[in-house]
Simulated assay, not measured.
Amino acid sequence: MTAQQRLNQVLELVIERGNVAIAEVSQALGVSTATARRDLNLLAEQRLVTRTHGGAAVLGTGYELPLQYKIVRQADAKQAIARAVADLVAPGDSVGLNGGTTTTEVARTLGSSERLGSTGAAAGVTIVTNALNIAYELSVREHVKIVVTGGVPRSQSYELVGPLVGSSLRDFSLDLAVLGVDGLTARFGATTVHEGEAEASRQIAAVAGRVVVATDATKLGRTTFARICPLERIDVLVTDVAPAPELAADLAAAGVDVVIA
């Protein structure tokens, strides 16, 4: 287990229990109390937890974790979702990607796809993104043309936000937009935790022929702060587990095709 993986597990433990003692962390992870104390101190220095006497507690329900602490969550599901999304992309397509762990996996899958990288006039794929980490990872892929929007980066997610996102997308026409979300319900549609990221995702969707929401089942039936778009704006939902019957009925009524990875 790497240090980053261990920190993720410590953070998950604090979030799950609300507060933990050093001895609990030590026992749960099979590490020394000195290591547990050092990990809690590091997370507290990064303002991810609050240090307490003999342990640590969560900061609050509305706190957004930085991207690097979300990467290992539902990793297998996100990789399966990414493969299913890649099947929706044809050689020569232009694809908009917002930021997040699931869309990062989608980007990696597109970047390593032999089908999209095959020779021919229509080979390759154009990726338009507001996520700096996605642009960086795909910049070395010869069959991928990268276009990065304007905007101001958020350190939590590496996403560019602000009015420059929309202005830089205004003259584009994308085949599809692939959006990662933090919540999906019938009442509020696709949502995320930050209003700037929601607006950026709306701008990407606005210039796309089809909108694909790629999210694991933990986000289904959940609502977060900022709306991206209603269900009716979504063409395809790619997820890892079939939605609950009520949500499935609402998705069908809205004309959303559901793909189970």
Rank of each mutant, 00 (worst) to 15 (best):
A86I: 03
G99K: 04
V140N: 09
G100Q: 07
D171H: 15
L247T: 01
N41I: 11
R115N: 02
A205G: 05
V49Y: 13
T185P: 15
L13W: 03
V181C: 05
D175C: 14
V213D: 04
L116R: 05
R51W: 08
Y158L: 07
R51I: 09
R141H: 12
V144K: 06
S167M: 11
L67I: 11
T218G: 15
L11H: 13
V178Y: 06
E232C: 01
R17A: 08
V72S: 14
D216I: 08
T126V: 15
L88W: 00
Q68E: 08
Q9N: 10
T126Q: 14
R38F: 05
I204M: 01
L237F: 03
A190M: 14
K78W: 09
T33Y: 08
Y63W: 15
Y136G: 04
A217R: 11
S201Q: 08
Y63F: 15
T149S: 12
G96L: 11
E199L: 07
D171V: 12
R115T: 06
A249C: 10
V31G: 09
V72T: 15
V106H: 08
V152C: 09
G54W: 00
L97P: 15
V125F: 02
V125S: 01
I22Q: 03
V178C: 07
L7S: 09
A56C: 13
T101H: 07
P243Q: 01
E114A: 13
V20W: 05
A56H: 03
A254Q: 07
K70V: 03
Q4S: 13
T101Q: 05
S167Y: 09
A248K: 04
G124I: 00
G255M: 00
S168Y: 07
P245T: 02
A90P: 07
R73P: 11
A90G: 07
